[in-house]
């Protein structure tokens, strides 16, 4: 099974976790989120952001640590990953949702992972 397909079925299993619905993240979701965050063709978050465990992280964006206090509102976090250009037209952070780089499920997995940082 390829990564996308397996992520998709994972998120189906997780009951189509909708944005904003607070539900404890499963270890599988967190692991899927890590995979997405560190895969260059998916989130590629560590190209620009330092977070613990990332190897060879960049510093184009701010370090992601203590993320719960950085972006306490999950909806807002979703919006940042979905389309940061809406908040800051000059940003270089790609609009992962709007430009169909990540699916809603994948964005949610990344958020679950980032909230462990």
């Amino acid at each position: 099974m390829n990564l996308r397909a397996s992520l998709f079925s994972l998120s189906l299993l997780a009951g189509l976790s909708a944005v904003g619905v607070s539900q404890a993240a499963t270890p599988a979701q967190i692991a899927a989120g890590q995979e997405i965050a560190e895969t260059t063709t998916l989130g590629n978050c560590d190209a620009c952001h330092m977070f613990t465990g990332a190897t060879e992280a960049g510093n184009v964006g701010p370090a992601l640590k203590d993320v719960k206090s950085m972006v306490p509102n999950r909806k807002e976090f979703y919006a940042i990953i979905y389309d940061e250009e809406a908040r800051n037209p000059q940003t270089v952070m790609p609009a992962f949702g709007k430009n169909h780089i990540l699916s809603p499920e994948q964005i949610n997995d990344v958020i679950d992972f980032m909230y462990t940082k």
Partner: peptide, 24 residues
């Protein structure tokens, strides 16, 4: 492009920063 970058995004706006291991 899908990532919606201009040349200037990386080589003006983020010049001198690190994109992964690469200096822009």
């Amino acid at each position: 492009g899908q990532l919606n970058f201009s040349c200037a995004s990386c080589h003006v706006q983020e010049a001198g920063m690190h994109l992964r291991g690469n200096v822009l």
